Simulated scan of single mutants.
Amino acid sequence: MSQDRRPVVLVVEDEPLLREMVAYEFELSGFEVIDAGSAEEALQRLSTLRVLDLLFTDIRLPGMDGWSLAHEVRAVHADAPVIYASGNTERQTLLPRSEFIQKPYRPEQIFRVAADLGVDLPAAPID
């Protein structure tokens, strides 16, 4: 990643307050945040991105789910790590460079998983 560019994260969460909280934590940590309330909205926003450093997605979304969204994102940004989040324990086979976190989660957990996936964390707190 270039030193003059902030890492870009796409945050997809249909619960507005949770989406704002996650986006805020990423912004505080130096990320450029693109957020969406559905997979379809995320794919529209994705079409304008030249680079994507991380996809953070809820699994249960209205319409297309997070599993399917991750496959669509990887078709365009093959190397983008993925963090799946859900309140349920249902899991499918994870894509390479992806991980699952259980809701509720703390921001530090998100950043620890992102670091484990090889994401450059400009100023993220990891406990």
Rank of each mutant, 00 (worst) to 15 (best):
S2H: 13
S2M: 07
S2F: 02
Q3R: 05
Q3Y: 00
Q3V: 08
Q3L: 15
D4Y: 04
D4P: 01
D4G: 02
D4R: 06
R5S: 07
R5H: 04
R5T: 06
R5K: 12
R6M: 07
R6Y: 00
R6E: 10
P7A: 01
P7Q: 03
P7K: 02
P7T: 01
V8L: 05
V8F: 01
V8P: 01
V8M: 02
V9P: 01
V9H: 00
V9T: 02
V9C: 00
V9D: 00
V9M: 01
L10H: 04
L10D: 08
V11D: 08
V11Y: 01
V11G: 04
V12P: 08
V12K: 06
V12S: 09
E13R: 06
E13C: 07
E13A: 10
D14C: 08
D14R: 10
D14G: 12
E15H: 12
P16R: 09
P16F: 03
P16T: 07
P16M: 07
L18G: 12
L18H: 11
L18W: 09
R19N: 15
R19C: 14
R19E: 12
R19L: 13
R19S: 13
E20T: 12
E20C: 08
M21A: 15
M21D: 10
V22C: 05
V22M: 07
V22Q: 02
A23P: 05
A23C: 08
A23V: 04
A23H: 03
Y24K: 08
Y24W: 09
Y24G: 09
E25L: 02
E25N: 14
F26P: 06
F26C: 07
E27P: 01
E27T: 13
E27C: 03
L28W: 04
S29W: 00
S29V: 01
G30I: 09
G30Y: 09
G30A: 09
G30N: 10
G30P: 12
F31C: 10
F31K: 11
F31Q: 08
F31V: 10
E32A: 12
E32P: 03
V33A: 04
V33T: 04
V33W: 04
V33G: 04
V33E: 05
V33S: 06
I34K: 11
I34L: 14
I34A: 13
D35P: 03
D35H: 13
D35Y: 01
D35F: 01
D35G: 02
A36N: 11
G37K: 11
G37N: 10
G37W: 02
S38K: 05
S38G: 06
S38N: 05
S38I: 05
S38T: 15
S38P: 09
A39Y: 07
E40R: 13
E40V: 11
E40C: 11
E41C: 01
E41I: 05
E41Q: 14
E41G: 06
A42Y: 09
A42K: 06
A42Q: 08
L43E: 12
L43I: 11
Q44I: 14
Q44A: 15
Q44D: 15
Q44M: 14
Q44C: 08
R45N: 10
R45G: 13
R45Y: 02
L46V: 09
L46A: 05
L46F: 06
L46W: 03
L46Y: 06
S47K: 14
S47W: 10
S47D: 15
S47G: 13
S47T: 10
S47V: 05
T48E: 15
T48D: 15
T48I: 07
T48P: 00
T48G: 14
T48L: 12
L49M: 08
L49Y: 04
L49R: 07
